[in-house]
Design a protein around this nucleic acid. Sequence first.
DNA 1: AAGGGCGGCAACCGCCGAAAA
DNA 2: CTTTTCGGCGGTTGCCGCCCT
Length: 365
Amino acid sequence: MGRHSCCYKQKLRKGLWSPEEDEKLLNYITKHGHGCWSSVPKLAGIYIYIYISLIIYTLHSTLLHLILYACLPGLQRCGKSCRLRWINYLRPDLKRGAFSQHEENLIIELHSLLGNRWSQIAAQLPGRTDNEIKNLWNSCLKKKLKQRGIDPNTHKPLSHPNDIHPISDSSKPHQPYPPDSHDLFLHHKSYNSDMLACFSFHHFNYPTTTTTTTSSSSLCFNNNIPTSTSPSPSSTTMLHSILPTTVNPTLTLQSNNPHHPLPNTIPHLVDNQALAWENNKDLPDDIKWSDYLNTPFFLGNQMLQTSPSIYATATEVKPETGFLVDDSCTTTTSWHHTHPQLFQPSSDIYSKDVHRFSMAFGQTL
DNA sequence: AAGGGCGGCAACCGCCGAAAA
DNA sequence: CTTTTCGGCGGTTGCCGCCCT
């Protein structure tokens, strides 16, 4: 059960793909789509067979048909292998090439939140595959973090230079950091499981190449808001988070100020297209989150009063990834330069603001 | 020039959950 | 409801090329 029958079939090729195999697979999928992967290897060959046999048909030669069928057996690969080859190599939308510093920092940040969920990390990096990211992490990024004195499994400073966590730890997604005196961690018990699942924050030091110890903060929201109870909004913006889909990872912000509706452009700031958006430079230059956010919001059917603490945190929402805040890594440098109003100094005040922010939610709900 | 070590990378393996039969 | 098939995922392996001795 659960086993691929193709794995046991004999005479299937394994190992590196030849250019001819690539061409067969590419031609077939480009023209017909992959459909059911298990039938792709057969069909990729059959279509070539049909095409050539039409030519031979004109020659009325049964013998030639037999010879052709014997010589064109299709792709001698299992469907799973075809799928992998397409996804990791042949897909036309792959970026290829070396990872940029921006991408590396983003992967590190995402890994601190998601653990080894490579597919979810890859979803935040257009044109990159989970396999590629996994390889980069195992061969390069883990070492870089260790050199900076950071445990790549926990993203915390290593207590000892050779302090490495067991391999088994890395196979599991990271749980939210336990509260202690060093990390800021808030995990809100659900006031109402339908309204607010939880939101949590952590705050830890991230030594960088430029400074030995720099503040870095991440901010996550998990919110379950039934839209049926929401007032009809003047505009509604769903901020997509990068968190697992086991919880509804969205926060609904609804402006009740008709003069300051939440713009439709906000999703583009925070969803998966952020990188593409950045690459295309197709950005409005005058985005001011404070303008958008500096207005009362409805959270569910409750009005969330304006509060300095909300603005302090809301304006630090990192556009590229939704609910990440990182004021030390270079991932945000370009934004900081082009949109300095998006980023407030964090340091100590950040912790207090996050606290107040969470309390505001609690009181409102 | 030979060969050993190492890193990067492509691809396989095995498991899981969902869907189909 | 059970069994089978399939797609997806993460861990791991092994090949290949580069570098050093």
